[in-house]
C-alpha cells in the first residue's frame, strides 16, 4: 500500500519531499516570531537559516534521486501494511502508546505486566507461564528500583 516493493530511489524522493515540507513549515513559522529592537540576531535567525539549509539539502537529495544509479537502485525497506513485520511493528507501537496512556489511569504496577506480556507475545514467545512470571517480576524489580532506590514518584493510578 505505502512504500511497498519500491526501490530506494523512490523512497529517497518521498523522504526529500517530506523534509522540504517540514522545512517550509518551519521557515514560515519563523515569521510569526516577535521582532526585538536593537538585537542584531533575533530568535528567528537560527531556525530560519537552518530551515533554508534543510530545504536545500532535501532538494539535493531529490535531484540526486531523479536518476537511477547503483546507489539507489535496490529495494527499499517496506512500510506496506500488508507486510507481516510492519503489522507487528504497528501493533507494537499501539501497545506502547496504550501502555503510556494508561500509566496514570491504571498505574505502573497494574499496566506494566500486561504490556510486557503483550509485547513478549507479539515478538513470538508462547511459553505463557514463563511470560507471566517474567512480566510480574520485571515490573516489581523496575518499580522497586525507581520508587525506593531512586525516590521517583511512580504513577499509581487506581492504586493510589
Amino acid at each position: 500500500m505505502f512504500l511497498g516493493g519500491v526501490v530506494v530511489k523512490k523512497a529517497n524522493i518521498i523522504a526529500a519531499i517530506i523534509g522540504m515540507l517540514f522545512s517550509v513549515v518551519a521557515f514560515v513559522l519563523t515569521f510569526t516570531f516577535k521582532h526585538f529592537k536593537n538585537v542584531p540576531v533575533g530568535p528567528e535567525f537560527f531556525p530560519r537559516y537552518l530551515a533554508v539549509g534543510m530545504f536545500i539539502c532535501c532538494a539535493v537529495l531529490l535531484l540526486q534521486n531523479l536518476k537511477v544509479t547503483k546507489d539507489n537502485n535496490y529495494p527499499a525497506k517496506t512500510l506496506s501494511l500488508r507486510d507481516k513485520g510492519m503489522q507487528k511493528m504497528l501493533i507494537g507501537v499501539g501497545i506502547v502508546l496504550l501502555y503510556a496512556l494508561l500509566w496514570n489511569v491504571l498505574g505502573f504496577l497494574l499496566i506494566s505486566p500486561l504490556a510486557l506480556f503483550a509485547m513478549m507475545y507479539l515478538v513470538g514467545m508462547h511459553k505463557y507461564l514463563r511470560m507471566g512470571i517474567i512480566s510480574i517480576v520485571a515490573t516489581v524489580v523496575v518499580f522497586c528500583i525507581f520508587k525506593f532506590l531512586l525516590g521517583i514518584e511512580m504513577p499509581m493510578g487506581i492504586l493510589e
Partner: peptide
C-alpha cells in the same frame, strides 16, 4: 524476546 520488552519498559520509565 524477553530482553526487548524489558528495554522498552526501562526506556519509558
Amino acid at each position: 524476546k524477553v530482553l526487548i520488552p524489558i528495554i522498552l519498559i526501562l526506556s519509558l520509565v
